[in-house]
Design a protein around this nucleic acid. Structure first.
Lengths: 336, 336
DNA sequence: TCCACGGGTGAGAGCGCTTCCAGCGGCAGC
DNA sequence: GCTGCCGCTGGAAGCGCTCTCACCCGTGGA
């Protein structure tokens, strides 16, 4: 089996340079091209990635960085869905993807990625507003796409959903079903999604002329914090709770029922994410569906775009969300 | 900032070869070594991976292959935990990891991995007994470690847990609490874990002199199939069900309670995996805990071992499992 | 004092590929 | 018929590193 360009050149009776041109789309006469292509086909030749990278700087390998705390990382399906989406989209055009999870410090991870000198671009999932890893990548000359983050000030591409708008929508839904004392259990402070959802909630409340004093309690995107925060809100008196994500809502639900209260008759409950279990809660949870897998796919496409047309400026994509109304906010009526 | 070996050589007043020796541990006088190390430190030099790979064949990059159907892939935390374990272990010694999920056909994936010519070794998570991807990797000269699979016939390293023994243990536990008509809802046929768990179950039953006729129903490792299979088993009459995994058990639980039966009074229920939710079911589920993350870590270590000592023959690791007894098999008594 | 030896070092040849540059032949224009 | 141009092609120079080989020099034995 032919392994190197020289072998192929010999087999097809042309020079190595010409074979390289055929592979990379350089100017070659039709006759020569056909001949070489035939040999290429028949030998099943694949270029050596290391050599190609060394000579040209293009490797076809892109990096994916998901530097989150282990307990956050794969706790829900967010990162895995993202990964699946990216993998599918990258499979079409890239040679492979290198993955960095949070096994090292951010500085160390950044250092390794940059010094690798192998990557053509990076997709980084950033959950926190401030992230030195993101800063470092953006400061480098490595084409970078952010997922779940927005930086207006830089030449970075990004993909995100409009948390603010979605939070506004679901809060407005709660208002529309007659709730007035609507509490909010936040996500982790300092995260993009956490902060944006707070803002969206506050905006909807304000527009409706409703107060939010004492109605915002800090959570941590998980069941335990949801349960604790819900207890606090119940004490302060609420008729609805919008939780920063589904896991938080699950915790809140436990607390609410533990106190002998009914959902949604006494307390309407809403989440965010529409994870698998949301539809299986009792009652099924009203929530916001965001196409996480689609975000992964889009991120890959944005990166390809940036690689293909480096001068074209960064591309920004905001994906739509969907309000999924279930019985936790509109009891009695059978929805979905 | 110094970027190439030549720069470093100039800076430290030695030849490129000597700098390379310092980096790679060749014979160098102490004085020279110290001098070069100082420069190395101060410049923060990192070797170019592509060039190093091209010249030596060693890249420090290992491949991780998880070629499963999307619905299987990250449905539960199995693959993500595996990934986290590997990532942590690889971080210590490898430059990076390339990931392949099931976005392409197995043939295409295999082809890409092999032609990449960049990887030092591969860790492949194989769920099915027969897998052309595994065959192809083993047939190549690429050092390969299997996770969740055993091949006695080849020079492959592997890491696995003893499903058979574990299934025997949990079945024996059901017997020891007085059950006699113990049904088994299998995993997907043809998977290593599915088949081994059947065998373990059958072995325990046989040893106790209990029949298994009509007591084995095929499942698919998920809730839906568990619910359906349980219905069938209940019709045939059972006093206990051992499910091939926790998700299956969750489905079975729904069916059992749907028929107005009590767990464990009427039907004792056992699962396998000890996923997060197992402890939160009502009643909490007796199951087998397997250290998935640990499997990932071990797999990385086995691979490093093989890379360090290629002649040393493959290493095989079987990790222990743990029987976690909860109220789904021993109601009344408060366990855990 | 001479020779054999060996640890430490540098020169240089690649690894497989891309890409610049020069050259070749054929065609149009004069 | 000769020059000029242009499209293709091959030669060759690297990309940054590893590793073999030869060499240098200092040491110990004869």
């Amino acid at each position: 089996m032919a392994r190197t360009l020289d072998d192929l050149a010999a087999l097809s009776g042309v020079s190595r340079a010409t074979v390289s041109r055929v592979i990379n789309g350089g100017p070659v006469s039709a006759a020569t091209r056909d001949r070489v292509l035939a040999v290429l086909e028949q030998t099943g030749y694949r270029p050596n990635v290391a050599a190609r990278t060394l000579a040209s700087g293009r490797s076809g390998v892109v990096g994916v960085v998901m530097h989150a705390a282990p307990r956050l990382l794969f706790q829900d399906r967010y990162f895995s869905q993202l990964l699946e989406g990216m993998s599918d989209a990258l499979a079409e055009q890239a040679a492979g993807m290198m993955l960095w999870l949070g096994s090292r410090s951010k500085e160390e991870t950044l250092d390794r990625i940059l010094s690798m000198d192998l990557l053509e671009g990076v997709i980084v999932s950033a959950t926190y507003l401030d992230d030195p890893l993101v800063d470092g990548l953006l400061a480098s000359r490595l084409p970078t796409v952010l997922v779940g983050h927005r930086r207006e000030d830089r030449a970075a591409g990004y993909v995100d959903v409009d948390h603010l708008e979605a939070a506004d929508t679901i809060t407005t839904h709660l208002i529309s079903v007659g709730r007035r004392r609507i509490g909010h259990i936040t996500g982790i402070r300092g995260t993009v999604s956490g902060e944006d959802r707070i803002t969206g909630y506050a905006r909807a409340m304000e527009r409706a002329g409703l107060a939010t004093d004492e109605l915002i309690v800090e959570g941590e995107f998980n069941r335990q914090s949801g349960a604790a925060a819900a207890a606090e809100l119940l004490e302060r008196g609420v008729d609805a709770i919008f939780c920063a994500n589904d896991a938080t809502a699950e915790g809140a639900l436990e607390t609410i029922r533990g106190k002998g209260l009914r959902v949604p008759e006494d307390i309407a409950l809403a989440g965010f994410d529409d994870l698998d279990f949301a539809a299986h809660l009792d009652p099924p949870l009203t929530t916001i569906r965001q196409g996480v897998q689609q975000q992964g796919i889009e991120a890959a496409h944005v990166l390809f775009q940036m690689l293909k047309d480096p001068g074209g400026g960064p591309r920004r994509v905001i994906l739509p969300t969907e309000l999924v109304i279930r019985r936790s906010t509109v009891g009695g009526v059978q929805v979905r």
